[in-house]
């Protein structure tokens, strides 16, 4: 079987395997609920005055809201369990004893997991468009929805790769999820905190550090792209009311995403290709 076919077979298997896990299914349901509930509430109650001027952009608000937090957790959970659960459950031996190159296996696992995360992002974006149209009427700039969607997928690759690397490095799904979540939450808290310290002290070092953290690129790239394409600055002031204005450039955000994703992928591949397949320990 050629490498491409092997990757597809392992990728399909990864979808089935991930979706068979209750916690992944539950987190995906939560993410969709987070998407649905605000629109349901807005449908039942009068539209708040602060939203009246931007009702045509509610599809974008709906698409980007889960991305800040829940979608990253979906990515972490799927990534950290991808290979680690195979070792933990003792199923890795059986697949890897088939005529399958190790590179094909890991690429299949990686792209299988990443496409599943992309599918969740697609669902939330699609729901955001449908629900915002149903609630607020015709939406503006929908022609940019595919670009926004791709920016969400591209930036989600960071925490998927960090989870994937942690899973392969520790070969224990719970430990991998704990470590990857710690990195996400620490970065999630530190980015606005360091930016705030910068605005108070004027010391650029704090801003530089905050921009080097993974959540800065992940959360800001889709916003930067939207601003560039159709939002302009200050169109959605309420979105920025919880933190300082975005500093840095789109190139810096793209570079950050590429660096963090590449490091994650490299760690996973080196560990997997250079070491023995871990056998399930006898309990």
């Amino acid at each position: 079987m050629n490498t491409f076919k092997s990757i597809i077979v392992v990728g399909q298997y990864e979808w089935k395997r991930a979706l068979a896990r209750k916690k992944v299914a539950l987190l995906i349901i939560f993410t969709i609920l987070i998407e649905l509930l605000p629109f349901v509430v807005l449908n039942l109650l009068p539209i708040p005055s602060m939203l009246l001027g931007i009702t045509g952009l509610m599809w974008f608000v709906g698409a980007i809201t889960p991305h800040f937090f829940f979608l990253q957790f979906v990515a972490l959970l799927i990534g950290s369990g991808s290979t680690a659960e195979e070792y933990d459950q003792g199923t890795a031996d059986l697949i890897l004893s088939k005529p399958l190159s190790r590179v094909s296996y890991l690429l299949g696992k990686f792209f299988g997991g990443l496409t599943l995360v992309s599918f969740v992002a697609f669902l939330t974006t699609f729901l955001a468009i449908v629900l915002s149209t149903a609630t607020f009427g015709a939406q503006l700039y929908l022609e940019y929805a595919p670009v926004v969607y791709l920016s969400l997928v591209f930036s989600t690759m960071v925490f998927f790769s960090i989870g994937f690397a942690a899973g392969e490095a520790f070969r224990s799904p719970s430990l991998a999820y704990l470590v990857a979540s710690f990195i996400f939450i620490t970065s999630f808290i530190l980015v606005p905190f360091l930016a705030a310290v910068n605005s108070l002290t004027g010391d650029a070092l704090y801003l530089d550090i905050s921009q080097a953290l993974p959540t800065w690129s992940v959360q800001n790239l889709p916003m930067m792209i939207a601003q560039e394409l159709f939002l302009g600055s200050g169109t959605l002031p309420f979105l920025f009311s919880f933190g300082p204005e975005i500093a840095g450039t789109m190139l810096e955000a793209v570079t950050g995403i590429l660096i963090y994703s590449s490091i994650g992928i490299a760690i996973a591949f080196i560990r997997f290709l250079k070491t023995d397949v871990t056998k399930k320990s006898i309990e």
Binding site: R17, Q89, T91, L94, S97, K98, L100
Partner: peptide
């Protein structure tokens, strides 16, 4: 592995299947 295991079948002891 792709070449070496092409004509091999492996049945582990009480395996852990998905």
């Amino acid at each position: 592995p792709a070449r070496a295991l092409e004509n091999v079948g492996y049945a582990p002891e009480l395996p852990n299947f998905q």
